[in-house]
Structures are given as C-alpha cells and as structure tokens.
Design a protein around this nucleic acid. Structure first.
Lengths: 338, 338
DNA sequence: CTGAAAGCGCTTACAG
DNA sequence: CTGAAAGCGCTTACAG
C-alpha cells in the first residue's frame, strides 16, 4: 500500500509530474538525458504505473476483452471445446508482449457486453464466433476497435481473421473422395448464417459436385459443437446411413464420433473413415489419431492481436483488414482407402 | 463515448453525487424511496459504473487475478493441460456471479506479478500450483487477499483449497493392488516440495507398504506434466521395467502413456493397467476410457472464489481457512484384474 | 524542453 | 438523511 506514484518520481528527479508522464509514455520526444534520469528513478523507486488512474485520465486502459461463445447462456465451462482455450492462450501471450492484459468474460454476448467494455474502458475487443445482431449493435455505439475471428457476418466492417473454410471443407471432402469414398456424411454444429460451418458445408458440396457425386440431404447431421453431440450423431449416423466416411467440421465432435463408434464395435478406419477440422491437441492424443484439417490456432490468435493493436494505435484509417490463414490436411490414422 | 456518469444521475434525480454513490454501493442505508429514485434514473439513463474511477477513488477494482503455472517461463500455451482451462472456466464463472472480472496472466510468476497486482489494483489473487519463494515474498508486500490452490507450501498462511492428495495416491494404488497388481510403476511430474505430486507419492508408498509390497525406486519415473512427457516415460517404462500396472499422477500424462503403449502394440488394459488422476474431460474422450482419481474441478474453482470473496469482504479476522475437497475413483476401462 | 493546473469519474470523511 | 468538497494518480492542452 502507500504506493510509489509519479509524484514520488517527480520529487526524486526534480522534474515535474508532466515530464515524468511524458517520459513514461514516450509521447513527446525528450532529450536522452532526461529520459535516463526518469528511468533511473523509476528503477530505483520501483515505480509501476497505476492503470486505473491512467485509464481514467487518458482513456487508454491497456486492457482488451475477449468474447468467447458459451454453450448455454450464463453458463460456465466456456472451454469445453479446447479450441477456445488454445486460442485464448495465444491471444493472452501476444497481448502480453504488447503490454496489454486480457479480460476473458463469459458475459452473455448480448447488449450487456457493451457495459463491460465501458466499465473497464477496454482498448479493444476480440470477438470469436458469431452472435446476434443486438450484440454488434450494442458495440457499435462505442468506438472501440474490434477484431472478429471466424465470422462471415461483418456488416459493420470490422477487421477480421479467419480461415478459408470453404477450401477446408472442400479439401477434407476431396481427401475422402480421393481415398475412394462416395457416401460421405457431413456432421457439424448448427449451420448458422455467417458461421464457419456454412462455408465448410459449401466446400463439401463443391467437392461432391466436382466428383460427380449427388448431394443427399440424408447424409447431413447437425448438433452442438461438443463431445456428447458427436456421440449422439454418430449413433444416428450408423442407424440411418450406409456411408463409408464422415467429414466432421469440429475435432471435438469428431472425437465423440470416434468414441461412440468404438463403443459400437465399428472400427475406425477399417469400417468407417473419419476426418475432422481444427487439429486440436486432442486429435493427436486419441487413438486412432484423427486425420483433420489443420489450422494454426496460435497464429490465429497472434494475427487477431496484431490487427487489434494496429487499430488501437492508428485510430483513423478505417480501411478494413481481412486476414485469411492457410489450412492443411494433417494425416493421421482415421481415414483409409477403399 | 461521452458516457453517462454519476453526475448525470445526480442531475436527473436532483440528488448529490454522494447520495447516488451511496445508493449504488449500498454502504449507507438509504430510505427505500431514495434508492428507487436513483435506480430508476440509472435504468433510464443507462448508467454503468466506471471501474477505473471507482478503483482509483475507492481502492476496490472488482478485478481478481489468476496465476497459472507455465510450462516454460515467458511462454504461451498456459493451457496445454486442460486442468487449467477447466478450473479457470469455473473461477471466471463464479467470480462473475459475484461481480468480479478475471485477469488471467501468463506473467512469469515471479516478483513481477506483484507489479500486475499493483497496476491493476487487484482485489484478490488465486494462485494455482507452487512457485518460488521470491514470488510469495513479492506478494506479501501487498496486503491483497490470496487463495492458494493445490499447494502444500503455505508459510504465509494463506487460505487454500486442495484435495486429499495423499488419500488419492493411496486409493489409486490400492485399487491396482486390489486388482491383483504387485509391480506398480509410479509416473508423475517433478516431485517438487510442496506440490501435489509428493503427497500422491506418499499415498502410493503407503498403499504398497500396507500390502506388504516392497517399494522400489526402479519403478519411479518423473517428467513434465504434459502429453509428450507421458509418451516418453511410457517408452522408458516398457524398456526398463516388468510392471503390470502404472499409477500416473496426471491424466494428461496418462493419455500420453495410453497413446505410446498403443503405438507399441501393448494393449491397455490387457497387457498393462493404467490409472490416472484428475478426471479431465479427455479421460472420458479417449479409448479405452481412462480409469482415474476424480476431483471436482468446478467445485475447486468455486471454493477458491468463495474463500477469496470472504477474505476480500472481511479484511480482518485472519484465521486461515483450508478446504479439502473429496476425491473418488472413476472407473472406466484402463485397469483389469490379474 | 519543461511545468502549473485542470480534469477524468468516482468515494468518503466531515458537516449539517 | 443528504451534500460540498477533497482527493485517488494519472494525462494533456496550454503557456513559457
């Protein structure tokens, strides 16, 4: 308590608090000498900036918010899908390198989030996934820089980073076709407008069409993006289809499929080929290893932070940046040729 | 921008900012009428509290910090072990219910963390795992309430929540013994003083002793708590021991063991029985399902928040609280009788 | 190149 | 029961 403040540094150096502040924030170019004096004193006294004060006075909080979808409104366990913990980890790391702290909040992503943004005077927000129109409207009221991750819904012209999901869907399906499969099921989370699943679905259909395979709605199954839903849909798949392969748009669901098939004594890949999407760590952990469409989640987080940082720093220049990260097939053991 | 402030509310209601503040914070008991007037105005104007200002003026930030161990100093990917994302999720959720936001930071848990605590004026800190003496020293300087999770190193008398790790180690080993195993390997992360592994190790030895089985150092292997290390140690285990079962003190490592054994064509549980610790989601995802010592991670996070909240609110009354959560065996398919 | 001073939006003794 | 006012620790025009 009774902390070292900028005043103490001023006293110690014989300079004014203004000069100390200028030195710390590098907003005015001060002579080398002055800088050294200030930084020496800071070092000596062990001064650290009080962000509450700085945020109040200057309207920069060095705090960024990350919005992550929740399975159910108001619930915990935002991280049941490891994709989110992996990307959050990357965001936190990259933000830290730039001097920002991260507030994750399971706040229902509705108008309410706008409150958090104001209460904490967030410098920027990274939004992962797709939300209701209300949510974006609410945020629009503030002028906080925003970066969208994995969203095709961008009526507000925010910066965004995503994958070529269409290509991913295409490649996954094509990979199965190249391995001789013709009856290929498609399992995913809800086909929500603006979400990644729709794009992946389109890629799936394109690959089918290109190979002269007739698309059938009977091979399509959707649920929620979690392990249990994967299990449930796997069972339904076995009961209602005679497919030889399945493309599942989320590894966490694909793992559920693997598990259920194993329980049903259906061998992967001997009796059924499975390909996922994400290349989560668990795709590597499970047995058989899951062949999947790999994305670089660390880089995704990094790019999101980079874009946000630029937007925060440059206020103006509202040209929209869109970064599309590459995807690749990661071959493991869950697909076989027939 | 140009936000609604307490002043606007004061103007709207014809009261002073002091009264509005009192109403919001409920620190003085105001007449029902006044409260209603204030809250109606707040509702009408859409006022939200500016936490920066509140933190500056009042020294309560409604912000809590969570310290999570890092595999390597300064690195990202704090969440390679899903245990951390699971407990963080619980902490965030429970903190939110009480009106707190959470800052996770991969800050190296050294003296530096003290800076974060000051910069952000944290109301409290939850520390998961065991750190260097420096770290605790640094924190001691502030008077911020702290709750330790999974630590036996408590020279500073902080509140803490943990498991009966000794009992867990005992039960796991006993379970294997009851299934006819006598040569039981022990695999864990570093046996760091004050950490959970030491306690689990003691439980392991106790069970052995009780069953009249001679302890052998040759059956002990330690590494880092991650998937890859699990794989590596599994190989070493197979090459150097003739055990029939292994107790691994972390599911994430046990999953690595399962994977490597599968690669080596050693069947679990036919050729080798494996029991883990944690009951992570992935213990359920993998095949065969991992039998493990289950802990309630959600509750662990919840209790940590509860203790912290009490400590924040009650300033005084420095009696140390210690909560020990129960553990249980979760039976799946990775252990067989011999 | 540097400083005096106002102000950011709250909280809280203190007075009435 | 309510209000005037000081103060928390910064930042930033403005002046010199």
């Amino acid at each position: 308590m009774n902390n070292i403040t900028i005043k103490d540094v001023a006293k110690e150096t014989g300079l004014s608090t203004a000069t100390v502040s200028y030195a710390i924030n590098g907003k005015k170019s001060l002579p080398e000498e002055t800088l050294k004096i200030v930084f020496d004193a800071i070092e000596k006294l062990g001064y650290v900036k009080n962000y509450s004060a700085s945020s109040l006075a200057g309207n920069t909080s060095n705090l960024i918010g990350v919005v992550i979808p929740q399975t159910e409104p108001g619930k915990a366990m935002v991280f049941e899908n490891p994709f989110y913990s992996e990307i959050l980890s990357s965001i936190e790391y990259n933000a830290r390198q730039k001097g920002y702290h991260v507030i994750v909040s399971g706040t229902n992503a509705d108008e309410k989030y706008f409150n958090l943004a104001n209460q904490r005077n967030l410098d920027g927000i990274i939004i992962i996934g797709v939300y209701s129109a209300d949510f974006y409207e609410g945020l629009k009221k503030s002028n906080i820089p925003i970066v969208l991750v994995d969203s095709y819904l961008n009526t507000h012209n925010y910066d965004l980073v995503k994958l070529d999901d269409y290509l991913g869907g295409y490649k996954a399906t094509r990979y199965l076709i190249d391995h001789g499969h013709k009856k290929i099921a498609f399992i995913s989370g809800t086909l929500k407008e603006g979400g990644v699943n729709v794009a992946r679905f389109d890629g799936y259909k394109k690959a089918l069409e290109e190979a002269g395979i007739t698309f059938s709605q009977d091979l399509i199954l959707t649920g929620t993006i979690d392990f249990e839903s994967g299990k449930t849909l796997a069972q339904r798949m076995i009961e209602t289809m005679d497919n030889t392969a399945v493309f599942c748009t989320a590894d966490i669901m694909a793992i559920g499929i693997l598990k259920k098939l194993n329980e049903m004594k259906i061998s992967v890949p001997d009796d059924m080929s499975v390909i996922g999407f994400d290349n989560l760590n668990i795709a590597n952990y499970c047995t058989p290893g899951l062949t999947t469409i790999g994305q670089d989640i660390f880089k995704k987080g990094q790019k999101a932070v980079d874009l946000l940082y630029k937007a925060i720093k440059s206020d103006e220049s509202k040209k929209v940046n869109e970064i599309i990260l590459p995807i690749d097939i990661v071959e493991r053991e869950s697909v076989r040729s027939i």
